[in-house]
């Protein structure tokens, strides 16, 4: 793709990503906020494709679209209303939040523009996705080895936090109660 097309594509995606991120917090319906966030993620994923991150860009798009679908389900569960129809504005200390975020943008933007960035070191491999795979299965294997138990711990932690009644509620702290304390009697062997 020629340089001008890449530039135009990047600016369109960049403006789309930021604008839809703003929409997330100003729109008056949870469902629309979720769709706007999904759009923002898709724009960033496509921008990553422009930066030749084929694998990471596609993974970002796929993962975030699914994640936003899950988020919409949670909203319906917890908000207890039709999220597409109910207007809402639930914010506190909006002025302070705006001031902090503008200050953060100024500091980060100034850093981006004023830091004398070094020149590029090395050239990308012809197939960056294959290079990433070889790296993950070779030199960077430790990263995968560390991320895997973190993911397992997340699954266990998520279930422990989210479950309403566990075996300790049913059989006591030492698991020594013979008849489980269930709200309803019955079931297999009870």
């Amino acid at each position: 793709m020629s340089g001008v097309l890449v530039d135009i594509g990047f600016w369109v995606l960049g403006v789309l990503a930021v604008a839809s991120a703003v929409v997330v917090f100003v729109v008056d319906s949870m469902a629309r906020a979720t769709y706007a966030l999904a759009l923002s993620f898709v724009a960033v994923g496509l921008a990553l494709l422009l930066l030749q991150q084929n694998y990471v860009g596609v993974v970002t798009v796929l993962m975030m679209v699914m994640e936003m679908a899950v988020m919409a389900v949670y909203m319906v569960m917890y908000m207890g209303m039709n999220p597409a129809l109910m207007p809402m504005s639930m914010v506190h200390d909006k002025r302070a939040a705006l001031a902090v975020s503008v200050a953060a943008f100024v500091v980060l933007g100034a850093g981006a523009l004023l830091v004398p960035w070094p020149v590029r070191r090395g050239v990308p491999s012809p197939d960056v996705t294959a290079a990433l795979g070889e790296s993950l299965m070779g030199k960077q294997m430790l990263v995968m080895v560390v991320v895997s138990p973190v993911m397992v711990a997340t699954i266990v932690g998520g279930i422990v936090l989210a479950s309403g009644r566990t075996r300790y509620d049913r059989f006591g702290d030492d698991l020594d109660v013979r008849t489980p304390r269930d709200p309803e009697r019955g079931g297999v062997g009870r």
């Binding site: 960049g14 930021v18 917090f25 939040a97 902090v100 960035w117």
Partner: peptide, 29 residues
């Protein structure tokens, strides 16, 4: 598309997210 312009867009995104994370009351938001 240069490093500076991409970082500027990223800074804007970060600032928008920060504003939302500080000001919103609903956990999901």
């Amino acid at each position: 598309m240069t490093l500076q312009t991409v970082l500027l867009v990223a800074a804007a995104l970060f600032a928008v997210g920060l504003c939302g994370a500080i000001s919103q009351q609903v956990v999901v938001m």
